[in-house]
Structure formats: C-alpha cells, structure tokens
C-alpha cells in the first residue's frame, strides 16, 4: 500500500466533490508534490485540522486572502471582500468537509480515525510547525488564477491502541509564530 499516493488520490476526490457540491465549482487541474515537515514562512489563510487513531497527523488548507473571500462568497452566496470572521468560518468548514472526506476514505485502508475541530489563521510572514515528522502530501488546485493547496501529513501512531480516535482538539501539537 502506497500511503502518499492513497492520500493524494483521496484529497483530489474529496476536494473536487466538496467544491462541486457546496460551491458549484469544478476545480481546475491539480498537481501533487511532497513537502518536508518543516516549511518556510506563510502569508494568507491557513487552516489545520487534526487526525488521530491508528495513524496520526494534520490536514491543512492554504490559500490567498482573495481566494478565501471567493470561497466564502461562493459557499454562502454573499459578497465577501475582506477576510473576516465569516470568511474564516467558511474556510474552516471547507477544511472540515475536505479532510473529513479524506478521513472517511482513508479509514477503509488505515483503520478508524478521529477528526478534531479546525483552526484557521490569517496573517503575514508567520511560521507554522507541526510536531509530526512525516512529509506533507500537497495537492495544488487552480481556480480563477489562484492556487488552493490541500495538504496532509500522516504517520503510524506509535501509541496505537492507547489513543482515543474521538478525542477533540489539535491532535498533533501545532506551533504558530512570526517569522523573524
């Protein structure tokens, strides 16, 4: 079983289904890459959601403020021009649905997984760090000239059997700080 390929395929299917059903949007062509556990500085809107069970990890969505507003406008049929609480909430729910779909798909291969409640960050020049060491599988989708990244890092749980898949909260410790 090639887990990174499985993750990439699940992300692709889930993201396209969510955009098609909830936003009436056909996502453009996608590209799959991997990223090391540590990453460079971020700008824009970044969401995180934890996964836990026999495998543990984090799902994430990264996009520009413009794209976040576009997502919110399309999802809620409103006109969002600046990142506010409503926009962050829409991105959080998008994360919940896309990574939730990935989770359901992966459970058929990896066993039961729990999903935390999403966290969304909006800012400039900030670093994020997930305590996990697994590489991120990254799917990049094009939509109206903007790029939406859906990312997931997942690794076998060394404490499997003692972990509660229903536990809420950020299941892999997450650190966010300004990039000096």
């Amino acid at each position: 079983m090639n887990v990174p390929n499985l993750i990439a395929s699940s992300i692709r299917h889930s993201a396209m289904e969510v955009f098609s059903t909830m936003l009436s949007v056909d996502l453009g062509s996608d590209e799959t890459t991997t990223e090391p556990a540590g990453s460079g500085p971020n700008d824009g809107v970044v969401s995180f959601i934890g996964l836990a069970g026999s495998w543990v990890g984090t799902g994430s969505i990264v996009c520009s403020p413009t794209l976040a507003c576009r997502i919110c406008s399309q999802m809620l049929q409103t006109e969002s021009t600046a990142v506010d609480e409503e926009v962050l909430d829409a991105v959080a729910e998008l994360t919940n649905m896309i990574i939730g779909g990935v989770k359901t798909d992966l459970e058929r291969h990896l066993g039961e997984l729990g999903l935390s409640i999403p966290t969304v960050i909006f800012g400039k020049n900030f670093l994020t760090k997930s305590a996990g060491t697994a590489e991120w599988v990254v799917e990049r989708f094009g939509w109206e000239g903007e790029i939406l990244q859906v990312k997931l890092c997942l690794a076998p749980n060394e404490k499997s059997g003692r972990h509660d898949p229903n536990a809420l909260g950020q299941t892999v410790p997450l650190d966010v700080k300004p990039y000096a």
């Binding site: 999802m75 809620l76 049929q77 909430d89 959080a92 729910e93």
Partner: peptide, 11 residues
C-alpha cells in the same frame, strides 16, 4: 458550530 453551515442550511 459552523456559522457557514447554519447559513447554508437556512438557504
């Protein structure tokens, strides 16, 4: 808990 989903469901 998502205001977005509550709004979508209203519609």
């Amino acid at each position: 808990d998502s205001a977005a989903i509550r709004k979508i469901l209203q519609r």
